[in-house]
Amino acid sequence: MNKNNPADRLRIIRKSKGWSLQDVELHSNGKWKAVVIGSYERADRAISLKKAVSLMEFYQVPITELFPEASPQVADRSLSLNLHKLSKIENSTAQSLRKFTKSIGDRRKDWNGQLLTIRANDLQFLALLLGIDESGTLDYLAEAELLNA
């Protein structure tokens, strides 16, 4: 178990409440099914950001608890995504990444459409959205040649 992996963090948070998977289903009046929570905790199923926020609200735990430490790869430097290159990639991961970067750009009022600086917490949420860990997310961005030095 990797205590910094969001899926493992979900299990740690649930167990810190002293709950089994069935207890989650019981306490949520069936909103959160035991089988679904278990699949999130095993990372067999990706959890959307919206559902992660809702689950953390149910647990009464800040969403930041899913990401206890900033990635050292990002904390020490900023990463810039090449949005122009991203716009030319046609796959579901790139489509999710485009929606995510548009949301960040809109929130920051940064509409230049060429580059977007990724912060440590942005990478954490992006990894959660893509259903892979931060290292895998960085690998994807590098392999797709989306990172600017």
Rank of each mutant, 00 (worst) to 15 (best):
Val35Glu: 04
Val35Leu: 05
Val36Leu: 03
Val36Ile: 04
Gly38Ile: 04
Glu41Met: 08
Arg42His: 12
Ala43Pro: 04
Arg45Trp: 12
Ala46Val: 14
Ser48Gly: 05
Lys50Gln: 09
Lys51Arg: 06
Lys51Phe: 07
Val53Ala: 03
Val53Gly: 01
Ser54Leu: 09
Leu55Arg: 00
Met56Pro: 01
Glu57Leu: 05
Phe58Ser: 01
Tyr59Lys: 00
Val61Asp: 00
Pro62Cys: 07
Leu66Gly: 02
Phe67Lys: 01
Pro68Gln: 08
Glu69Ile: 10
Ala70Tyr: 03
Ser71Met: 05
Pro72Val: 13
Arg77Tyr: 15
Ser78Lys: 15
Ser78Ile: 14
Ser78Val: 15
Ser80Ile: 14
Ser80Val: 12
Ser80Asn: 10
Asn82Phe: 11
Leu83Lys: 03
Leu83Phe: 15
Leu86Tyr: 12
Lys88His: 14
Ile89Cys: 11
Asn91Gly: 12
Asn91Pro: 13
Ser92Ile: 11
Ser92Tyr: 12
Ser92Pro: 05
Ser92Arg: 10
Ser92Asn: 10
Gln95Lys: 14
Lys99Pro: 04
Phe100Leu: 07
Phe100Glu: 03
Thr101Phe: 11
Thr101Ile: 09
Thr101Arg: 03
Ser103Lys: 06
Ile104Asp: 00
Gly105Glu: 06
Gly105Val: 12
Asp106Ser: 11
Arg107Glu: 11
Trp111Asp: 03
Gly113Trp: 13
Leu116Trp: 04
Leu116Asp: 00
Leu116Thr: 00
Leu116Lys: 00
Thr117Gly: 06
Thr117Asn: 09
